[in-house]
Structure formats: structure tokens, C-alpha cells
Simulated assay, not measured.
Amino acid sequence: MLLRVRDLTKTYPGAEGPVQVLSGIDLDLGDGETLALTGESGSGKSTLLHLIAGLEPADGGTILLAGKDVGKLGDGGRAALRRGTVGVVFQQFNLIPSLTVAGNIAFQARLAGRHDPDGAAQLAQRLGLGDHLAKYPEALSGGQQQRVAIARVLAARPRLVLADEPTGNLDEATAERVLDLMLELVAEAGAALMVVTHSERLASRLGRRAHLSRGRIA
């Protein structure tokens, strides 16, 4: 099993005391599987992705990713996991403003030691970014920045792709094309894909669904 989550809990401080965001989450995901993570705003979907990627510490429970206990890794170990095993498509893009589109796409692949210039150029072309490679993020629309963020993760060929509303800034036709490409590329790599989404249409395209409600998977 690529990902195994057991009894995961997370609490944040609130104005009136601690707020329980995740309450005993259990989740499994194997190589090649695709999963839609749905739920109302504030149900903990993005938090769960961040915990799996080692971006935040859990309060309790375990996350085993590619045989490693994420909670027992130090900062260096979690960073290494994000370089080589897991890629995150953030809702806010998190592009590097000082790098061109081409540089942003290559960034994570270089860190992982998997940079393929020809493959990256083909990926950019397929995502409609071929004419924008020399531009900087500030010159792009929100939808174009979203596609760069997706390309950056896919170019590194991680075993697990975590995507937080990856088509939220795209029109419906472009969203369909981007999702098709994501599914095609993760299938080619034998990778797993977990997508946070509010879109019923997108969720229906993935192999499985997990619905978060009141901090639990319903």
C-alpha cells in the first residue's frame, strides 16, 4: 500500500478554544489508484493533504507513505519525501516569481534528479503553455498559473500526486482537458492521485471517493 492513514487527528486553536479539524481519519491508497476527496468548506480536506505531504504535523495517528512514517521524519526527511515521492498542487499555486514558466516547471524535477528537458517541453505544450515558457508568473492569468503548478508536479514524476482544487481556476473545457492529461500521466507513471474538489463532475471521473464531514470520512 502506497499510503496508509490511521486514526489521524488534528486540532487548531480557536477564539473559543481548540477546534477539532480531523477526528480519527483512516484512509488507504495504492499505486495507480485515483481518489476524489470531497466535503464542505472547512471540513479538513486541505489540512489532510498537508498532513500527508508532511507540511504540518498531526496531533495523533500515523501516516505511512511509501513505507515511511511521516510523523517520525525530521524536516530533512519530510523535504526529501516531497522531492522524490509526493508532489502537491497547491490551491494558491506557490509558483516562484523569479523563475520563468520553464524554470518553474523544471524546479521540482531538478530537485528530484528527474529533469527531462524534452519531456518538460512536451508537457508544457500539452497543457497549452508552449508559447509562455519564457514568461514570468506575474504575466500569466490565474488559469495559466494553475496549469504551470500542475506541470511542475507532473514533470517530477512523483509516486503520489496531491492536488487541491487543481482545476478551480479553469473554465470547464480547459478543466476537462487538464484532468484528462493528469489522469493520463499518472496512469503512465503508475502513480496515485488524490484530488480535493468541490466539483461533482471532476469527482465522478476518479476511481474512488472519500467524503469528509465533521472531521471524519463518512
Score class of each variant (00 low, 15 high):
residue 106 A to M: 08
residue 71 G to E: 07
residue 72 K to L: 12
residue 144 Q to C: 05
residue 81 L to K: 03
residue 131 D to R: 14
residue 193 L to F: 01
residue 178 V to F: 01
residue 133 L to N: 04
residue 106 A to D: 15
residue 114 R to H: 00
residue 99 L to E: 09
residue 81 L to V: 06
residue 186 V to L: 03
residue 180 D to N: 15
residue 134 A to C: 02
residue 150 I to D: 02
residue 133 L to K: 02
residue 161 V to W: 01
residue 135 K to H: 15
residue 172 E to D: 13
residue 122 Q to C: 06
residue 85 T to E: 05
residue 76 G to W: 09
residue 180 D to L: 13
residue 106 A to P: 12
residue 132 H to D: 13
residue 194 M to N: 10
residue 138 E to N: 14
residue 151 A to S: 05
residue 173 A to R: 15
residue 192 A to K: 07
residue 194 M to F: 07
residue 93 F to I: 01
residue 83 R to L: 05
residue 171 D to H: 07
residue 183 L to S: 06
residue 89 V to F: 01
residue 179 L to H: 02
residue 78 R to C: 03
residue 170 L to I: 12
residue 82 R to M: 13
residue 107 F to E: 12
residue 68 K to R: 15
residue 73 L to C: 06
residue 56 E to F: 01
residue 81 L to T: 04
residue 168 G to S: 06
residue 123 L to K: 04
residue 138 E to H: 15
residue 64 L to P: 00
residue 52 I to R: 02
residue 64 L to H: 11
residue 155 A to R: 07
residue 170 L to N: 11
residue 124 A to Q: 00
residue 102 A to Q: 10
residue 140 L to G: 13
residue 89 V to H: 02
residue 111 L to M: 13
residue 94 N to S: 08
residue 117 P to H: 10
residue 178 V to D: 10
residue 113 G to K: 06
residue 68 K to N: 13
residue 60 G to L: 03
residue 81 L to Q: 05
residue 70 V to I: 04
residue 179 L to T: 15
residue 76 G to E: 15
residue 167 T to N: 13
residue 78 R to G: 02
residue 194 M to W: 03
residue 114 R to A: 04
residue 60 G to W: 01
residue 91 Q to G: 07
residue 137 P to G: 14
residue 88 V to E: 02
residue 57 P to H: 08
residue 159 R to I: 06
residue 146 Q to F: 10
residue 197 T to W: 12
residue 139 A to M: 11
residue 115 H to C: 06
residue 137 P to Y: 13
residue 181 L to T: 03
residue 160 L to M: 08
residue 115 H to W: 14
residue 177 R to N: 10
residue 80 A to Y: 04
residue 75 D to G: 07
residue 145 Q to W: 03
residue 186 V to C: 04
residue 142 G to W: 01
residue 102 A to S: 12
residue 169 N to G: 12
residue 148 V to L: 01
residue 157 R to D: 10
residue 83 R to N: 10
residue 125 Q to L: 14
residue 188 E to H: 04
residue 98 S to N: 08
residue 167 T to Q: 10
residue 90 F to M: 02
residue 52 I to C: 06
residue 99 L to W: 04
residue 162 L to G: 07
residue 166 P to H: 07
residue 124 A to H: 00
residue 140 L to W: 04
residue 178 V to L: 07
residue 132 H to L: 15
residue 133 L to Q: 13
residue 121 A to K: 14
residue 79 A to D: 13
residue 109 A to R: 02
residue 63 I to E: 09
residue 131 D to N: 14
residue 76 G to T: 11
